[in-house]
Design a protein around this nucleic acid. Structure first.
Length: 408
RNA sequence: GUGGCGGUAGCUCAGUCGGUAGAGCCCCUGGUUGUGGUCCAGGUGGUCGUGGGUUCGAGUCCCAUCCGCCACCCCA
């Protein structure tokens, strides 16, 4: 048997109502906040992700689905949706539109990682982006949008972690300062920490060794080294979140995995999913558009995993019923034929109507009607019909009058 | 990519010491029952993940591999 590729999953009909509830809620909310939908290709020029995510990032190092097409071009299935949207912004000259340009998409993303619950090689992300403004109120708006999204879905147990990682003015100096501190305290480091010092210094705070973590408490933190502009920006973001009533905790060591982030960064952490409990992550990316070849343009946005949100939603799913209106039960072949024009007319009027195609017995057909949640079960007998209407006594009618009685 | 655990019917699982494959649910049929619910009886459904090996004989033991789950890495 041919099975689905590793790390992918089918979304079956039974799961569709919940999926549509989630994506529909996202779309409705984005519309209310003034974000407009956009779609970009599933694959992009490989260079787009190499340049923006950073050569040292895990995504570029080991997780991209990269292939050569028949002409030898290197293409990559998108591992995330922000860079493609920024690319579309530049390519279509959206910097001439009134700023900021507020966009969102619900897109499949692809990462070659070892799959487990909440981590897939193909997954879906809601990606919301505001490009063209460095106003801290935009950061706050977009964070509050996701917070409101969770509220609407009934997810209550989550945490928002917030940080600022500075910009090109203050971050390089901070990294230098941090590396210098690490050099001076080399004796308290372990191999993992030394490794990170060499590749991704900001990540040394993630090391496992508790002894090293303890020692790192004394190391300089980015928050103390922000330039005045970044400091003011961050405090304005926090003030706006306070005004919105969005709770958060400052996480001074929160660093994101992609190189393009600047200033504000955040993660929403949900209650489920074990090690994969991050349900949304985002931040500001003030040099991304420029990196792609557009004019210097600030931006801010987030990606939110749909599958992980569903995990966080487990046990709180709303009742989503999708019963049909009319089901015809026929014993004789002649009755089935007699019913066809009624079936067409009911459907023409927008009612969900159906009949048996599995050669079931009368009892089986009535059972099927019940399974489908039929509002009216019409048991046909020649030109007459007995109708079982939910919550009422059975009644009889000539078939000729059925449509008018039900739909008229 | 590394390590640990697992894979038997559509689903949830049992399967003893190696001896010809089981249950419940679901589905279909018949009966009971003044609603499609309940109850009773019967039936369909299997490459025991896959491929090798050991053996007279493998769901069971060994090896490899695929897939899932957990941890690490990292993320959504």
């Amino acid at each position: 048997m041919i099975e689905r590729p590793r790390g992918t999953h089918d979304v079956l009909p039974d799961e569709q109502p919940l999926w549509r509830h989630v994506t529909g809620t996202a779309e409705a909310l984005c519309a209310i906040y003034g974000y407009r939908p956009i779609q970009t290709p599933v694959f992009e020029d490989t260079e787009l992700f190499q340049r923006t995510s950073g050569q040292g990032s895990d995504v570029v190092q080991k997780e991209m689905y990269t292939f050569a097409d028949r002409s030898g071009r290197s293409l990559t299935l998108r591992p995330e949706a922000t860079a493609p949207i920024a690319r579309a912004y530049v390519e279509h000259g959206m910097h001439r539109l009134p700023q900021p340009v507020k966009l969102y998409t619900i897109a499949s993303c692809y990462r070659y990682a070892t799959p487990q619950r909440g981590r897939y090689r193909e997954h879906f992300q809601l990606s919301v982006e505001a490009i063209g403004s460095d106003d801290p109120l935009v950061d706050a708006e977009i964070v509050q949008l996701y917070d409101e999204f969770l509220r609407r879905l009934g997810v209550t147990e989550y945490q928002l972690e917030l940080n600022s990682i500075g910009d090109r003015n203050c971050r390089p100096a901070y990294v230098e300062k941090l590396v210098q501190w690490l050099d001076e305290h080399d004796d308290v480091l372990d191999d993992e920490a030394r490794q990170k010092r060499a590749t991704t210094p900001l990540r040394v705070f993630d090391v496992d060794n508790p002894r090293v973590r303890e020692a790192l408490q004394a190391a300089p933190k980015i928050g103390e080294s922000l330039c005045d502009e970044c400091r003011e920006h961050f405090s304005a973001v926090r003030a706006a979140l306070d005004a919105y009533g969005v709770g958060y905790t400052i996480q001074p060591t929160l660093v994101r995995g992609l190189d393009y982030y600047t200033r504000t960064t955040w993660e929403f952490v949900g209650p489920e999913g074990g090690a994969q409990s991050t349900i949304s992550g985002g931040g500001r990316y003030d040099y991304l558009v420029e990196e792609i070849g557009g004019p210097p343009t600030p931006g801010v946005g987030f990606g939110a995993g749909i599958e992980r949100l569903l995990l966080a939603l487990a046990g709180r799913e709303p009742e989503l019923t999708e019963g049909i209106d009319v089901f015809f039960v026929c014993d004789a072949a002649a009755d089935r034929e007699r019913v066809l024009p009624l079936l067409a007319e009911l459907r023409r009027r927008g009612l969900k109507a159906d009949l048996d195609y599995a050669a079931r017995s009368r009892k089986g057909q009535i059972t099927q009607a019940g399974r489908l949640g039929a509002g009216w079960t019409v048991i046909v007998d020649g030109a007459q019909a007995t109708v079982r209407e939910q919550g009422k006594e059975d009644w009889t009618t000539p078939l000729d009058a059925l449509v008018e009685t039900i739909a008229g």
